[in-house]
Design a protein around this nucleic acid. Structure first.
Lengths: 229, 229
DNA sequence: ACTGAGGCTCGTACACGGTACGAGTCGGCA
DNA sequence: TGCCGACTCGTACCGTGTACGAGCCTCAGT
């Protein structure tokens, strides 16, 4: 009973025949591999959204049979997990020496930006297991806040607060600009109901488009609250 | 070409035959209606989660044919929207006269509690249109913050910050206690990788179970930052 | 040179899912 | 009586994830 894969063994130990390509077969595709599958899944997700990712479509794009994927990957959930983590790497702060606030803000804005570049990732993240790239970011956050002098007992709360803020902001943002139809419909419903919700209508709460500015400003407020007194 | 429904006309103008039940038919179910469908959908979602809601299952539970649902409801998305909003009603602060912070905290904790009572709602909310009950909550928030003296230019940012915080916290919480399996697996992976993430390991970031306390405390920090100086 | 064992690919099949279509029922009114 | 509109539902279609097992192709051991 062939071993079947057991979690992470789609690795590529074969392909000893390095330099010589198979003569027949019109070039076509390089061999299947976990990495290639994940990369293609990200492409597909970017292009078609969460519902656009289908094992069949994925296989098509890879030029392989559907069931071949399952040799390298446990199931569709696995594909999501891998795609997600692959998109959340952090390369660290830009140059040398910033104050702790600058460092935190940079990492969180980068986090948000990464997720918005792949809008499907935002809504996926909170449901899935924490991959290594996410843990690294949390680790960094933890270290920075401790160094900044946040009380030992408050660090965890601070981390989760920042996490919550970033997740909420990004998920909301990502799902809002998906469809202009929804936006138009919402707009219409809004003006129709403006007498029911006068305050949010007057302040144009739902029409403000400066998401980036609002994110930065709100993050500022939160950090004000978190700063050691 | 029978009118078909057009969005909100599954209302019940028939049933003129009030007091007299149909003689044959062994009692069985009351007639189908939008309200009954939504209520049953919520039951199903509570019991089986987002993936557990199936038009077929829903119809089974209602004792009707699958396609009958589509007379009262546009499609499955519609069911989600209706179920979601039906679960988010706010009944207002407990008694009389609180300070603005107390009012805000009460409303947001109630919001969170409502969503945690129906864990599927948290992950659905940010993707779906804003229903009337949600808008009411935002309206209340807006009024309260203005009354509290938050600068005109900051009110919207404050609202979104609170929204983000609540959404992030609730979604995270709701998806975390779904499966003990995941939790166990994560725990194991964590201790295995503890040398890679020493700080979050030492602070037991991922093992702390006091979600409610953390929510309240973090909300306090955020409100500190938002308070008019 | 032959054989057998994996590593890997893939076609077929199944059990579901949402929903289009159109036929059927019933009650009230002309 | 005939019709019409509100409502119900069976059937059918197509698209989904994935179990199963048959088929490679390469290499190790003989």
């Amino acid at each position: 009973m062939a071993a079947k894969r057991s979690g992470a063994q789609g690795k590529r130990p074969r392909r000893i025949t390095e330099g010589l390509q198979p003569v027949h077969e019109p070039r076509s595709e390089p061999p299947l591999s976990r990495e290639r599958i994940v990369a293609t899944a990200v492409e597909l997700l970017d292009a078609q959204g969460v519902d656009g990712l289908t094992m069949r479509r994925l296989a098509d794009r890879l030029g392989s049979g559907v069931m071949s994927l399952y040799w390298h990957v446990d199931n569709k959930e696995d594909v999501f997990d891998l795609a997600l983590d692959s998109v959340l790497e952090y390369r660290g702060p830009p140059q040398i020496a910033q104050d702790w606030r600058g460092e935190v803000v940079h990492m969180l804005e980068d986090w948000r930006a990464s997720m918005l570049r792949h809008p499907w990732s935002a809504s996926l993240l909170p449901r899935r297991a924490l991959g290594p790239n996410i843990l690294s970011r949390l680790e960094l956050l933890s270290k920075t806040l401790s160094r900044a002098g946040v009380a030992e007992a408050d660090v965890n709360v601070a981390i989760w607060s920042l996490w919550n803020y970033v997740m909420g902001a990004t998920i909301t943002r990502a799902s809002f600009d998906l469809s202009d139809d929804d936006r138009a419909a919402g707009h219409q419903r809004l003006t129709r109901l403006s007498e029911r919700y006068p305050t949010i209508e007057r302040s144009r709460l739902l029409l403000d488009n400066d998401w980036d500015g609002a994110f930065r400003k709100g993050l500022g407020f939160l950090l004000d609250g978190l700063s050691p007194r």
